[in-house]
Write a protein that binds this DNA or RNA. Structure first.
Length: 488
RNA sequence: GCUCCCAUCGUCUAGAGGCCUAGGACACAGCCCUCUCAAGGCUGGUACGAGGGUUCGAAUCCCUCUGGGAGCGCCA
């Protein structure tokens, strides 16, 4: 390890950032939809690579065929791209180390498995799942760590032949060395060391012939030239296992950055209720990708900038040295804030496209532009446009109770005057001024009844632009209706 | 149970022994602006989990405890 990579303090982590192009990867298993926690890991990995001019790899870890499927894989690609990430190598774009789906890399794994075997570091294990779980339970009950008991570790050739003859399927285990210490320097946690005696022999190939995570994941990182593995904290204590394999095979070990997990507001795992918080769900709710990015990049990573970060600014602001160690809670209130920012930062065209599905067809360009500009500050999600579409382009909706109150407060005479002035077809400012003169009202007392009568609400976008879009006859009709209500 | 990780406002966080009377952002409350809401501006309340050390001085370093989390899977 180059000396400048040693140690773990922030300054050195900064050095790591600026001096070397990093090769990072995101390695999801396609066994479910992309969750927020994973999305954050992907984002951070992506930023680390892009920031240093390195490469970002997408590798699909689908060795467990029963849990993986192509629908989830496609959904993963979609959601990642929606988030704004792109990758230099991956199942769908190829690359020098193709294939990038682990199911398709079995031949590669077999080669490395053979090397491990030749070194005497593997052995077949004939224990059944039932036996293993029983053994685990017993150990737990006895207050001991539930590790593999080593039942098959020292089987001789005859004993092995016997199991084979009995038709017992064999998994392959890695022979963990005794009395050693595995050390590494974590980018976020600093130096770590683990005793191999605390690690039980673990399975690297299942009875069905597929390789297990500890093995294939480590091998692929090495083979694909990954130099920084940025992943969840939950892998921290798994790391020595992977280091042991890499060591045994004389493969280069990456640097590891274990970021704290994302948890829910209740402090518990981000999953059950937040199962509604997969990227796809957020997207369906109408959240903008930039909002999600801005929120995620500040979870477990502190930004120098408090405000909105566009793509370039986010890249500039990102720094491995500012990755945090403590678990972060997902707080939807903060996401909502970034959503508002995201809406504000949309271009006019993008904003119109965003709410397009709720807009009536056949609007002129200028109607569209006026409407969008007027309504934008009041919209957080596309569906929020519906209310104002109804007010402006549709039939009057039911009066909100506060609106009815405001109308009654103003009185029938107010609306009688208002109708008269409106019928003269003056521009908005002039109209309001004259209504004010005629009714001796001003300020809120003048605008509120008009707003209430015309929009049915006591709050909403600026009145003037809205009124230019509503047919004059419709406006006077609504005012007359208000007049009736007020005199009733 | 064993091993490991973590601990600053309600939330995200700044903080690498004196710049800390603990800063910012979100949220909340109030005021201003304003035709309303939103936006914007200003103001306010709220935090170093506890106890011991080390030191002239600790949010910061050490120890213990407490609380949370992860791993110990033929899941990844």
């Amino acid at each position: 390890m180059p000396p400048f990579l040693a140690g773990s303090c922030a300054r050195q982590r900064s050095l790591l950032m600026t001096s070397t192009p990093l090769v990072t990867r995101f390695a999801p298993s396609p066994s479910g939809h992309l969750h927020l926690g994973n999305a954050r890991t992907a984002l951070l990995s992506y930023l680390a690579a892009r920031k240093t001019g390195g490469r970002f790899i997408l590798r699909v870890e689908d060795t467990d065929e029963s849990r993986s499927n192509d629908v989830f894989m496609q959904s993963l690609f979609d959601n990642l791209r929606w988030l704004g990430l792109d990758w230099d190598e991956g199942p769908d774009v190829g690359g020098p180390q193709a294939p990038y789906r682990q199911q398709q890399r079995r031949a590669i794994y077999e080669g490395w498995l053979a090397k491990l075997d030749a070194a005497g570091l593997t052995y077949p294990c004939y224990c059944s799942p039932a036996e293993l779980s029983l053994s685990r339970k017993r150990q737990l009950a006895a207050g001991k760590p539930p590790r593999y008991a080593g039942t098959c570790r020292e089987l001789n050739a005859a004993q092995q032949a016997d199991r084979v003859a009995r038709g017992l399927p064999a998994a392959l285990r890695f022979r963990v060395p005794t009395a050693q210490t595995v050390s590494f320097d974590d980018v976020v946690h600093g130096s770590q060391s683990f005793a191999t005696d605390d690690i039980g022999d673990f399975i690297i190939r299942r009875t069905d012939g597929s390789t297990a995570f500890f093995f294939s994941n480590a091998i692929d990182d090495a083979l694909m030239g990954v130099t920084l593995v940025l992943r969840g904290d939950d892998h921290l204590t798994n790391t020595p296992r992977q280091l042991l394999i890499l060591q045994a095979l004389q493969l280069p070990a990456p640097r590891y950055a274990h970021v704290a997990l994302l948890i829910g507001m209740d402090g518990a795992k981000l999953s059950k209720r937040e199962g509604a918080m997969s990227l796809g769900d957020l997207r369906a709710l109408g959240y903008l990708p930039g909002a999600v990015r801005n929120h995620l990049v500040r979870l477990g990573h502190s930004c120098v900038t408090d405000g909105w970060l566009d793509d370039a600014a986010m890249l500039a602001d990102f720094d491995l040295a500012r990755l945090g160690r403590a678990a972060a809670r997902f707080d939807e209130a903060q996401l909502l804030h970034w959503q508002k920012e995201a809406v504000a930062h949309l271009s006019d065209e993008a904003f119109r496209d965003w709410i397009a599905e709720h807009l009536p067809s056949g609007l002129t360009g200028s109607q569209l532009a006026t409407f969008a500009a007027a309504v934008r500050p009041n919209i957080v999600f596309p569906r929020d446009a519906m209310q104002w579409v109804a007010v402006v382009f549709g039939e009057p909706t039911a009066l909100a109770p506060e609106a009815a109150d405001a109308i009654k407060e103003a009185g029938a005479d107010f609306f009688a005057s208002a109708v008269q002035v409106f019928e003269r077809g003056l521009d908005f400012r002039q109209t309001v001024r004259e209504i004010g003169q005629a009714t001796l009202r001003k300020g809120p007392g003048l605008y509120m009844p008009l707003r209430a009568a015309i929009t049915g609400e006591t709050h909403g976008p600026e009145l003037a632009p809205l009124l230019t879009l509503i047919p004059a006859a419709e406006i006077t009709a609504r005012l007359s209706r208000a007049q009736q209500l007020a005199s009733a």
